[in-house]
């Protein structure tokens, strides 16, 4: 429906193509980008650059954030130490770290990846902590009565019990990372979908801007879909406790 209106607006000349490119122009631009590339960089390379950053930053964020969150959920001392830090930095948009990160790491891959790490880290800490503290006391009691040690309960009860929350955290985190990444690439990157949009803008290639926006949206949806499928596959018991 939206597409038809968009198509009509181009065909009837309602919208000024300089300000709002039509679908045919956009598809042509997209095709050119996919085959020849824009400024010698192809669509695939831009997508790959963005995905690589997100996977590294998000991946490290999960790997570090989950243990910290679990530890905070299990240990009151650790919670007292980390909680103020987490609460202070959690509301800060990850992009706000960029000036500092560029100062520390220079321009290149590192600041973007570190920023994504921050974005994912705080979300994962909170998700893992909620997963631990949300365990039903009767499950822990049942395990104790069945002769399980503290260590065994941690591994066999608390950890699997926290998995659904952790997965929800991962889904949120990957969405936030994706949005943040594209914004970060607008500022300081040569490749990536955000950088591509920004460069296209300076050359008045607005059809590439529109095409880039659509691709960003589509990849965002695909990432979420992958996470949802993984959730169904790995935690089929979610919400049925």
């Amino acid at each position: 429906m939206l597409f038809i209106i968009w198509l009509l607006s181009e065909a009837l000349g309602i919208a000024d193509p300089t300000f709002f490119p039509g679908p045919i122009e956009t598809i042509q631009g997209g095709w050119e980008l996919a085959t020849d590339g824009f400024q010698r960089v192809t669509l695939a390379e831009h997508v790959f650059a963005s995905l690589r950053r997100i996977l590294i930053g998000f991946g490290i964020g999960v790997v570090v954030g989950v243990p910290v969150g679990l530890a905070m959920g299990l240990n009151n001392t650790l919670r007292a130490i980390f909680d103020p830090l987490i609460e202070l930095f959690r509301p800060v948009p990850p992009l706000a770290f960029i000036p500092l990160l560029i100062l520390w790491f220079g321009i290149g891959e590192t600041p973007a990846v570190v920023m994504l790490f921050f974005a994912a880290f705080f979300i994962m800490v909170i998700a893992a902590r909620a997963g631990v503290t949300g365990v039903r006391l009767s499950k822990v009691h049942a395990a104790y009565s069945l002769g399980a040690s503290k260590q065994q309960i941690l591994r066999n009860v608390i950890l699997p019990n926290a998995l659904p929350e952790i997965f929800v955290g991962m889904r949120v985190a990957i969405g936030v990372c994706w949005g943040t990444l594209v914004a970060a690439e607008l500022v300081g990157a040569q490749t990536g979908l955000g950088a591509m949009i920004w460069t296209a803008r300076t050359f008045f290639r607005n059809e590439l801007v529109v095409f880039g926006i659509i691709i960003i949206g589509v990849i965002g949806v695909i990432l979420d879909l992958i996470m949802r499928k993984a959730e169904e596959r790995f935690i089929p018991w979610r919400g049925r406790g």
Partner: peptide
């Protein structure tokens, strides 16, 4: 002095391990 396996416990519900 603490929980032990000489005393088994059955709860109202939700104490099974659904994973």
């Amino acid at each position: 002095t603490g929980p032990g396996q000489d005393r088994g416990m059955v709860f109202q519900q939700g104490a099974l391990f659904e994973w």
